[in-house]
Design a protein around this nucleic acid. Structure first.
Lengths: 194, 194, 194, 194
DNA sequence: GATGAATGAGTATTCATTCAT
DNA sequence: AATGAATGAATACTCATTCAT
């Protein structure tokens, strides 16, 4: 059973890497098997078919996202420090493979992700936003975040800004890298002149 | 010539719809032909192969994005009004089909988009950011935008916020819709307490 | 009508070249049209389909062979001189395109040449052998050819030797070229020691 | 391994039959599979593509030719007996399927046989002529073949005569069949009157 | 008569899945 | 449980033929 779980995990890890790198249709079952160090037939011992493997990597993808936010949320640090950590977490994920943010991940697999799994994924994302909301509520309690703005919208601002910042960096080669402090200040004070 | 261009356009329109809806690999040439109201062989009169059709829809995708920003940029209205228009433009595009933002569109087709086309697309995105920058410079001139923050980063903030706002709305069914005014204020003033 | 016949001939000439060079299936109707300097549709004004064009080039192919033998046969020269001319004629045909001898031409298109045309071609070849026989009869009359050997078999000897001689030359790069005189002597005297 | 080689051989046998009967382009992969008693996909387990199957049947074709000559050459019989055997061997091959002589086989597939395989085939033919030469040298040693004629040219005479004899027989229905003895005498003594 | 844009039947090839070992 | 040889459904693409101009 121990063994079995290991093989299962190896298969999922191999699949996650390959789907991330080449997409669903360009990833062959044989490659997944090869990457997992098992035979092609073995994949079907642990999963019903290719779709099932894919579905599981999808769920896992958003789950990991959610967990990393959850983890940050539960830390015993200030609101501002948490925002900075979210920023760093995103940076790390890019160095790995998960360049897409969850929603776009879903979008890019429209027609591939099964309805059932999609629902699960949306739930995870909702949960993640819930957690983001908690972080922002902490800021409000600490007195650093305005109380009269919905935490949801603030979450949007933070998540969107962070995501787009890294998007831009990917696109413009000569992009000047800004420090976390400056970005946080922008989020905090806005760009408007009083 | 007129005629010919029409068929070409019909094919591209059909392809754009189908690729958008089902992705590259799940879209069959026969379906594209059917959707365009032409025979299968006709596709190959106008395009070398499936990839070439796809490439062209990709270029067009970012081109349209770029043009809509360009158009807003050139209008004779205030900075704030332009930001609001960007917001509305995004909303319209979602009602159509272009749910993905350009970068994520690219990401989701990693391994499918040809190198050459990818370059073109990145250029369009860079151009779009350039245009965004111009809009922000206008704000600085008008005295409504802080001069000591890089226009690039402000562009990130605006684009990211707008994108993520609609992402969230897609994900959370019970999401309370906020007005443009409130969102603009958030961007303008930040969420921080002075 | 004059015009029409010219176009017909242009098409056949183009087809003959291309079929000879690339075979039936690798020759496209468009190429034939291009080579003949006419539009694709025009081919169908003069021929029912590709097969009909091919059939006609086939008939023509053996017809030309037959005619060249016929021509040599009717010349006012000795038997030996006629054999030498046959040899030279074959050499010329190789420099052109018709590297295959008629029977092998037929063999190589088994399943492509229509039954009806095949019959015609076999008739031409029979006629050609008939003519060869006449040439040999002349030799017998002249007293240079043995009378007690069937002219048919002698025809085989001459045609086969000439054909194979050029086959070998095509295959062996370092092949020493022998003169017509020596080859004729071999045919005439055999290789046996009395 | 045994098994595997059997399937490979089955496929090649099926392909050889079909290519011989219908040519390259008229033979469908499905038919080859059917003839070999395997599934369509299995063809691709043993061969890269249709061309590779074809190439191998081509090589085999000339190889068999070469081997039969080689076998006759190595027998412990007189020169004359060997020539008679060559004649009979050709007759057998016609009853089978190999109606074309090797060079014409090659010619008939111009543009289909790959360059690499063509080279191999020419080598086999060269080898075959080499072997023919050895047979003729034996005749010279035995004192039955004239020493002052190149063995190459004599080989041409023998091969050409034999080939053409059967060509003629195929073409002329009413052809009188001559005995081996008469044909050998013709080769041996020529048709000329001293 | 002449044309070539439009067509779709026909085919090589791929790859997820099965199943005998 | 594990395997990979065997399979055939599915699909991009070609090219002979048609027909409106």
């Amino acid at each position: 059973m121990e063994e079995k779980n290991n093989k299962r995990k190896d298969i999922l890890a191999s699949a996650r890497d390959l789907f991330g790198e080449k997409g669903f249709h360009n990833t062959k079952m044989e490659e997944i098997a090869l990457g997992a160090g098992v035979g092609k037939g073995t994949l079907y011992e642990y999963f019903k078919n290719k779709q099932e493997i894919f579905d599981e990597t999808c769920e896992e993808y958003v789950k990991i996202f959610h967990e990393s936010v959850e983890e940050i949320s539960s830390m015993d640090i200030t609101f501002k420090e948490k925002v900075i950590l979210l920023f760093r977490e995103k940076e790390k994920s890019i160095d790995k493979e998960c360049e897409k943010n969850p929603i776009d991940y879903i979008m890019s697999y429209k027609g591939i992700i099964s309805e059932k799994v999609l629902k699960t994924m949306f739930e995870y994302i909702s949960d993640m936003y819930e957690t983001m909301t908690k972080i922002i509520e902490q800021g409000k309690k600490e007195g650093t975040v305005k109380k009269n703005i919905s935490s949801d919208v603030i979450a949007c601002l933070i998540v969107g800004m962070i995501g787009e910042y890294f998007n831009l960096r990917m696109c413009k080669k000569d992009y000047v890298v800004y420090g976390e402090e400056e970005i946080f200040n922008l989020l905090f004070d806005g760009f408007g002149v009083k």
